[in-house]
Design a protein around this nucleic acid. Sequence first.
DNA 1: CTGGACCCATGCTGATGTGA
DNA 2: TCACATCAGCATGGGTCCAG
Length: 655
Amino acid sequence: MATTTKSITIGDSKMYDLNVIYWRTIALFFSDRDVDVKEVLAYELAPVPTAMFTEDGMRICKAKSTLKKSLQVEVSRRNAGDADVTVIDGSALLWTIHWPADGTVADFIDNVKTRLISYLSESDVYLIFDRYYDYSIKSVTRDVRETVVSRKHHLLLSTKLPAQKVFLSSIENKKQLNLLPFKELTEDRLFHLRGTNKHKLVVTGEDSCPIEIRMEERRSRYELENQQEEADTIIVQQVLRCAGEAHQISVVSDDTDVFVLLLHHYHQAGLDVPLIMESPRKERAIVDIKATLSKHSEIVENLLPAHAISGCDTVASYYGMGKGSVIKVLKAGYELSAIGNMDAPFQQVLDPATAFISACYGIKENTDMSHTRVWGNKNGKGHMSAPNLAALPPTNEAFIENVKRAHFQAMLWQNLNVNLLPALNPEEFGWKKDTCNRSLIPTHLPEDAKLVPDYILEMIRAAKEATLKEVRLEVANKPWLWSLLPEWLKLFTSSPEYQPQASNPFLGSRLASGGPRSLQKVSRRRKARIPAGAPAAMVPAPVPAPAAMVPAPAAMVPAPVPAPAAMVPTPVAVPAAMVPCSSAGPHSHGTVLQYHPTQPWFRVPVPCPAAMVPAPEPAHTAMVPAPVPCPAAMVPTPVPAPAAMKLLEVLEGER
DNA sequence: CTGGACCCATGCTGATGTGA
DNA sequence: TCACATCAGCATGGGTCCAG
């Protein structure tokens, strides 16, 4: 939609569409043959490594559950057997317990107790609540997930319950909701008598030491002491501790991380005790860990590192890389055990990580991510769409930061019992401290890394100046074109002046808070989050105008465009990305032109997406929207519109 | 919060169509 | 018959919404 505008103002910040910069750089490859593809792609070309970060922050793996779904071996409840130890993920439980609409906090906690008593009637229960530490490596994930701006409540037992969704979406509120039941469960004598007469209850909360309750007796379980923050790891640790005495263990959790951890440690410890994993929601599948393990014995060694490196709560995932393809690649056989090995030097961690992620991008046997970036085949394979910057593999520098994080996470996961946090400083593993919010922020790139090569910037700047002059002349010669201007001008007066900075093309973007916000798609939810200072109408408002002016890809093929032939000095073809497959563009079946079929810039029939950049050739005229636009052809398109971009350039120059 | 359902876009594969 | 075009089906993954 908004691909024709380079930037737009929301509130006080100026937003850029990252892909525009990318398209332009690709186009530069053709405007000047001296540009070295590999060298340029060694730079990020964007304010954030777009493969791993979005404008809102780190790209969190959305479909983590795919991993669990595709590996798990289900058993029916009837065949699941009766566990004598149940380990419960407290925060998952809280989401599934009835939330009385008109009740108080005490009512809710009563429901928690009732649920626990039903578990306690069958088996010993280990209940683990999440911990919320300052400077957590999970703070980014939490920030991303905190989708609704909700009020911070101060909870007392008598407090009337706020709406569940609103309430549980806030970290501060969740913290309290974890603390209150913990206090209640460990101190309510009546509950102890009713619930723990047959089986014991072990509750783990903020305190490093779990508390065991059996009837009137209450004692600290020092041997289970654990400093780890994540409930996932504590759950697995307690499962391992119980494995010796228990006859069957049941883990109540929905989390894919727990699933991966259980598989890993069950295998590592060589356990044999029946272990099932069930959801706090009764209707969901029950997973037999032992059966799952024997079914996937060939990949289980590398599953945990692969999960860490391909994206989890603390490690960015890569755009276009789902867990499905990760498993596929893993099954092809990759040795990743160095990731998470505390004794391995970093290079020994990086090499297999690079090879693995490259393989996920479709490049085999590789030890340099920048190589994958150039030759990876995920990007621009199609003939209908423009290449997407996010689909480009990350640069080596950005990738290394992510590998550090994955390594750190894998170390925590693999050493459940060791309190590593004092020994390991997250700041040496791809995070930096944000003292304002008392949180850790993942680093995008090393501080000294440049985003765009200097000479590319210079070329863009020089090309712009040269073109402006020519284009102005042409536009002046076309009265019908001028007639279009008022509408456009209206649009652009509302957008700030674009001045490419010689030092940083992304200046003014939201670098500090995670980069610019692409306006290609503004979700309803996201719109709701735009600060009050920016009227919501400002977001979509300017969009329809340029979109309507951009003809559909088919209409952009030079031939049917009603531009006078005289206006087209050279037979300029549109960039490959814009050529529908029915036209002259090479197809997947191969032509001589398909020199390196995976790369968009090699599929261009005639080397001239120069029209996309402010290039000396006034090729844009061929792309000017027809004076009598056919509404049907005027669909909004994600394809870059050279004419619009060019015209925009001119108009901005005019102001 | 999570997983799951759903929709959509993209891109691959193989079968079939078409013109020289 | 060949080389390519076209099409349908399928797999994958992103985005969104929802239940509990």
